[in-house]
Amino acid sequence: VKKMAKAIMADPNKADEVYKKWADKGYTLTQMSNFLKSKTAGKYDRVYNGYVIHLD
């Protein structure tokens, strides 16, 4: 998940494709939050927020 999150950060155009894969795998927002937690607070906030919007 972190590898794909980094791919989104490097190229935001990949976001919809990645979010669809995550949704197809049934990842919940709680799971995504836990996967994307980082020592650098807020590092993956943009990715998480994008997934929230995708699921909505």
Rank of each mutant, 00 (worst) to 15 (best):
V1R: 03
V1A: 05
K2N: 02
K2P: 03
K3L: 11
M4G: 08
M4A: 11
M4D: 15
A5T: 02
A5V: 04
A5Q: 03
A5L: 07
A5H: 01
K6H: 10
K6C: 12
K6S: 09
K6R: 14
A7L: 14
A7C: 11
A7R: 10
I8M: 07
I8F: 01
I8N: 01
M9W: 05
M9E: 04
M9Q: 06
A10Q: 12
A10N: 11
A10T: 09
A10M: 13
D11V: 04
D11S: 07
P12A: 10
P12M: 07
N13P: 05
K14P: 02
K14Q: 10
K14M: 14
A15L: 06
A15W: 06
A15S: 11
D16C: 14
E17W: 11
V18P: 00
V18C: 07
Y19T: 01
Y19H: 03
Y19M: 03
K20D: 05
K20E: 08
K21Q: 15
W22E: 00
W22Y: 02
W22K: 00
W22C: 04
A23I: 06
D24M: 11
D24K: 10
D24N: 10
D24G: 08
D24V: 07
K25H: 11
K25R: 13
K25I: 13
K25M: 15
K25G: 07
G26C: 10
G26N: 06
G26I: 05
Y27A: 00
Y27D: 00
Y27L: 09
Y27I: 09
Y27S: 01
Y27T: 00
T28A: 01
T28S: 09
L29C: 05
L29A: 13
L29P: 11
L29D: 04
T30K: 12
T30I: 13
Q31H: 08
Q31F: 07
Q31V: 07
Q31D: 14
M32A: 02
M32S: 00
M32N: 02
M32G: 03
S33G: 12
S33T: 10
N34K: 13
N34L: 12
N34D: 14
F35I: 11
F35N: 04
F35G: 03
F35T: 02
L36D: 03
L36K: 00
K37Y: 09
K37H: 11
S38E: 06
S38R: 03
S38D: 13
K39D: 14
K39L: 08
K39F: 09
T40R: 09
T40F: 10
T40M: 10
A41Q: 12
A41V: 11
K43T: 07
K43N: 06
K43C: 10
Y44G: 03
Y44H: 01
Y44S: 02
D45S: 06
R46N: 14
R46T: 15
R46Y: 14
R46D: 15
V47F: 04
Y48P: 00
Y48D: 02
Y48V: 07
N49Y: 14
N49G: 08
N49E: 15
N49K: 11
G50E: 06
Y51F: 08
Y51A: 02
V52I: 09
V52Y: 06
I53E: 14
I53G: 10
I53A: 15
I53K: 15
H54Y: 15
H54I: 05
D56A: 15
D56W: 14
D56K: 15
D56R: 15
D56T: 15
D56V: 14
